[in-house]
Design a protein around this nucleic acid. Structure first.
Lengths: 248, 248
DNA sequence: CGCGGGGTTGAGGTCAATCAATCAATGTGG
DNA sequence: CCACATTGATTGATTGACCTCAACCCCGCG
């Protein structure tokens, strides 16, 4: 396990931006200078709610955060996951009213950054502004993939796909050792992400285990057969728009 | 019917940006000066394909365009609609590889704009850059809503919801008279947008007609009972992030 | 006049939801 | 240390929403 107290909040953000954008030395200094207010939360805590007009954006430092929406009859849909380094509500910079909630799906450490600070940084450092814009565009690409996943793939494929995405993204920010991911996410949350019932999520996970693609113990998910999982999940990394994809 | 030949391509774009952003007189001149190459297409034509590295973005001047993705076993999912004034692939400015296709869903008139021109405009006119960024953020908000629609609403509600969105967006760019929208879209395309079969789309439309919420004749869709349709579709305009919503 | 695309209809099948238990792990108060 | 509550995972039985298949209809068009 990585000792988090040794890693500054800036490192997590910088590392993430480097995986998607061309960040120079000068920019790194600017990013490190952004004041970040850290706070820890338990699972299932609403960080921002639909209708809010937040004055802060936040970066995920540790844990899993989801963008969620609720239908009129109270069902929940998770529309995307966010892992360490991601800034889920960066769009709040330019859309004043929140159209979704952001909730922790596992215990999480969050870093809050003032909107006016971020706007100043963007005005003065076009490369950082571009990197941020690019980050929101990748979020959009992920949403597109999720529409497809939920709309046109059957439950088994859908489940495999989302595991591929999670594992791939966690690996690209260095949060996976030996193909084992620590994902203390409930099956109910997976269901809300996939548009499936908890019961069916359970059965699909069983099928993935039975076919030898994954193994689970506690909150650990082990991708036993990564190529097999990718195939089962109809997974193609293009939509994640990573700069270099040497380590598939 | 509006006589399109009297409307310049810039008017359509400017009008759209004004519905979502604070565009000044000075900016309008800049926008009008962007060279636009117009072209007409029939329905079901791929304007851009997954994997492409386009050097142009395009604005929809007339007709309906969809962002589409295909699963491994050949099923199609439409992840969003784009109406007159929208720039569907603006994200191509900062994401070099396309992760989805853009196809015409009806006959359409399209205006192509060079990426390098758009980049220059963005560099020199921050308010326009912000408006463009905002436009891509609203696209993302729409994707989020679609994930929810497809993942957690049942077919009938889903169908009503998408009609509400289409009608609302068409109205906000002045393409609707007397609550009647001209939508020459096939039921198969609606199915691909909703994650439903053509047969079921047909039955849901019948149910909406039977309940007196809509009437159709040819390609015209008449919202007979707009409040009723909004209620049936669990529709809330927040996610479209319009500047003023006086005319719901 | 035949053809094709899109819309409509019916019958039967299937995937996934719902309902209702049970079980395992963890925590809590007495 | 044990009764008890709670949360999450698992299982079986049943139901239901939606799909698939296969017609048939309608209309514009070559």
């Amino acid at each position: 396990m990585v000792n988090l107290s040794l890693i500054s909040s800036s490192d997590v953000l910088v590392r993430k931006l480097q995986t998607i954008s061309d960040i120079r030395e000068a920019d790194i200094g600017v990013l490190r200078a952004i004041p970040v207010q850290m706070k820890d939360f338990g699972a299932n805590h609403d960080l921002v709610r639909e209708g809010d007009h937040p004055a802060y954006s936040f970066v995920v430092l540790e844990g899993l955060v989801g963008s969620t929406k609720h239908t009129g009859d109270g069902k929940r849909q998770i529309t995307s996951f966010f892992v360490a380094g991601d800034i889920p509500d960066l769009h709040g910079l330019h859309l004043s009213v929140m159209d979704c909630n952001f909730s922790t799906l596992t215990p999480a450490r969050i870093g809050f950054m003032r909107h006016d600070t971020l706007r100043t940084v963007c005005d003065q450092h076009p490369r950082i502004a571009t990197a941020f814009w690019r980050s929101t565009l990748i979020d959009a690409a992920i949403y597109r993939e999720w529409v497809t996943n939920v709309g046109r793939r059957e439950a088994y494929t859908r489940m495999a796909h989302i595991l591929c995405e999670l594992i791939f993204r966690l690996r690209s920010v260095g949060h996976i050792q030996d193909h084992v991911a620590d994902l203390p996410i409930t099956q109910a949350a997976l269901g809300d992400a996939l548009g499936l019932s908890t019961v069916h999520v359970n059965r699909m996970l069983q099928e993935l285990r039975r076919k030898g693609l994954i193994a689970t113990s506690g909150s650990k998910v082990h991708a036993l057969d990564w190529p097999g999982l990718i195939h089962a999940g109809d997974f193609d990394t293009t939509y994640l728009h990573q700069r270099n994809r040497t380590d598939q």
